[in-house]
């Protein structure tokens, strides 16, 4: 187990925004750090939620499996984000799997400790509510997209959402800065691997994106936004 982290790792985390240094020190005293190699599950769907979690470094995929085995990627968690906390507010069971998709460092707080911290520092509970609210809004947007939009727009929206979360400027354009497979994109957009491959190949031939096995670079950001938002076409070569 890595040594107890410095309270500074909590700075900038929306869950703990507004806490003073003493409160942050108290929060970090209850935290259990854990290194999670790429590919390792952190918790599993249906398990009793023993803890709430926050990611310090790396990337975690939250994926839910239906009764028929069909998987849906709920979201990717990046550094500074909380995860696995919904169970604290609901039935105490994790609603999805969490798997590290790159080498990660996570903190966890036993459910009882997290509840006590929220009672002692209501700002944490208010922050959690804001985060849950933001995620609900995102889920509502995705539900609307899945219900009403052509699959091409859904895929464009999914990539743009990932850019907002983990975009990085590179020479060729804007890279999504973590391993992302076409299967992941299919599971984020409620479509098949075949459809994602066909769509990305078409975009590649137009020079809009470039995708490796686990990597996506947006070469023409505006063109992707134009697809997602149904913007009027400008010039065919853009």
């Amino acid at each position: 187990m890595p040594p107890s982290p410095d309270p500074a790792v909590l700075r900038g985390m929306p869950l703990f925004a507004g806490l003073d240094a003493d409160a942050l020190a108290e929060v970090v005293r209850h935290a259990r750090p854990r290194r999670v190699p790429k590919g390792t599950p952190i918790f599993s769907q249906g398990e009793t939620a023993a803890a709430g979690h926050a990611l310090i470094d790396g990337r975690v995929k939250i994926v839910q499996t239906g009764p028929d085995g069909q998987q849906v990627v709920m979201r990717f968690i990046g550094p500074g984000e909380m995860f696995g906390t919904l169970a604290i507010f609901t039935d105490g069971l994790y609603p999805a799997d969490a798997v590290a998709v790159s080498d990660s460092l996570a903190l966890s707080w036993p459910t009882a400790a997290m509840t006590v911290l929220m009672e002692r520092h209501p700002a944490i509970a208010m922050n959690a509510l804001t985060i849950v609210g933001d995620r609900l809004r995102e889920v509502q947007n995705r539900l609307r997209e899945v219900s009403t939009e052509r699959v091409e727009r859904r895929i464009a929206h999914a990539l743009i959402r990932l850019v907002r979360q983990a975009g990085r400027r590179v020479e060729a354009g804007v890279e999504i800065d973590f391993p992302l497979s076409r299967q992941d994109v299919a599971e984020m957009t409620g479509t098949t691997l075949h459809t994602v491959s066909r769509t990305l190949s078409a975009w590649e031939s137009q020079g809009i994106v470039e995708s490796g096995r686990q990597q996506v670079v947006i070469r023409k950001p505006h063109a992707l936004v134009a697809i997602a938002e149904d913007l009027p076409p400008l010039r065919p070569d853009r």
């Binding site: 743009i160 959402r161 850019v163 975009g167 804007v174 947006i218 950001p221 936004v225």
Partner: peptide, 8 residues
């Protein structure tokens, strides 16, 4: 409001 604005 565009996600690409920080990169372009």
């Amino acid at each position: 409001g565009c996600a690409m604005a920080p990169f372009m």
